[in-house]
Nucleic acid binder design. Structure first.
Lengths: 238, 238
DNA sequence: TCAATACTTTTTCTCGAGATTTTTAAAAAC
DNA sequence: GTTTTTAAAAATCTCGAGAAAAAGTATTGA
């Protein structure tokens, strides 16, 4: 955390000013979206061509991705995409519920009028994207606005460390969430969940808001959990 | 979490297998111990000689240190040691109290006989180091054993993410704690605190243990907080 | 047929040099 | 005297090639 530096916290980040950063973002995107499979070996000599940078530059980008726990490296055996598992997602979920509910509680306490305005705006933009999402396959815009909605919810929380950890966990969860939304194993009205959450926050009802948020996050886990294992393993190839 | 890879979680880490890792550890040590001052610019061309590696290798080590939030980088303007401030330490303290108390609670619930044994052993080694520390200036051994004691306390907590975040926060806190221990502004019997903590944990009294742990962590913050600002600024030069 | 050894191929790790960009300093203009 | 422009210096960023290690393959021996 510390600042909005090269690696994390690039919510409103400007253009990439360096090739390392371009490669970092492209790689991150490909890992989160699953184009680079979990556990897959990341051979520098091969990847440098794909991403159009030199070997050293790519190595640096991969080192940066270790911050986000999206890449792991061991000794003299190169880099790999961080593996995934249901146990890991459960851990992510529980930790995130704990941290995000606490952050939301603080945010509701500390948030001022400007925060309320931002929240309303973020919810509105998300709702619009939900409508559009029904038919089209444009998941990116919805993902982006969903992230911003959750970010704004806890924006008034004064703890930068809490928010830093949450941004990592959110990113991790996104890898799994993509499965859940795509396959929709458990019927749910995400829009309604978001609306109830927003209203409870606006009403400064911290208990209610955190209860909704906790369920909201846990439901996504249960959703992934209920996916048949063979269907899951297609994506979660170790 | 993720794994015990290049960057974090190297509690029982073997020899560095690569030059990047050597440089990473040396740099981390120098930052935590304050040889590289907070906010200081880290010029690659200059540092590569100090650490005896090439420019690319040093850059990679610095990128790795961003994971630990000990180094920050911005755009095209190189690397800097992460700055410090009392506000940041307060945030670190509060976040750490929250996470570490939760982890301890889980650890006390889940810990088995082997855990009790490890805890007893870690406490004993720490106590021995405390005795020796009185006269000598050998802070390193005590720091190491103190870290292991806290690590063992929460070792039985099943959440790898919680432990991952705590290892980062512990490392951050160490930067500040070194001031507190050196100057000793508030008289305290750290040995007694540790002993009470250990006994409460062994007695499986989670409420008592977390209360002691919380105070233990907060006291270090107050200790640093009470250091006169001019004395502090000698070290915390931005 | 299986295991161990030696060899080849691949990949990682490392370094130094060149191209951009930022920073610093000096000179010129207002 | 202050600001702007211009030029020099320093630092960052980037790349490709060479050394070390790991992985894979073939050969040899039981």
């Amino acid at each position: 955390m510390a600042n909005n530096s090269t690696s994390n916290g690039d919510s409103l980040m400007s253009e990439p000013k360096t090739l390392v950063e371009s490669a970092y973002r492209a790689l991150r995107r490909d890992i989160i979206e699953g184009h680079l499979a979990p556990g897959e070996k990341l051979r520098v000599e091969h990847l440098k061509d794909d991403y159009g940078v030199g070997a050293g530059t790519l190595r640096e980008a991969l080192s940066l991705l270790i911050s986000d726990a999206l890449v792991v490296s061991q000794g003299q055996r190169g880099f790999r995409v961080a593996p995934v598992s249901l146990e890991d997602f459960e851990d992510i979920t529980q930790t995130r519920v704990m941290l995000e509910c606490e952050a939301l509680r603080q945010s509701i306490t500390m948030g001022d009028d400007a925060w309320e305005g931002d929240l309303l705006a973020a919810f509105h933009r998300l709702a619009k994207a939900e409508e559009k999402r029904i038919g089209t396959d444009d998941r990116e815009e919805w993902e982006e606005r969903n992230r911003i909605f959750h970010e704004v919810l806890i924006a008034a929380c004064p703890s930068r460390w809490l928010k830093h950890f949450l941004s990592i966990l959110y990113q991790q969860a996104e890898r799994y969430r993509r499965l859940s939304l795509y396959l929709q194993p458990i019927p749910r009205d995400i829009h309604a969940e978001h609306e109830a959450l927003m209203q409870a926050a606006m009403a400064r009802d911290a208990d209610k808001a955190t209860a909704i948020l906790g369920e909201h996050i846990r439901l996504t886990f249960r959703s992934v959990q209920s996916i048949p294992k063979d269907q899951l393993n297609e994506k979660l190839a170790a």
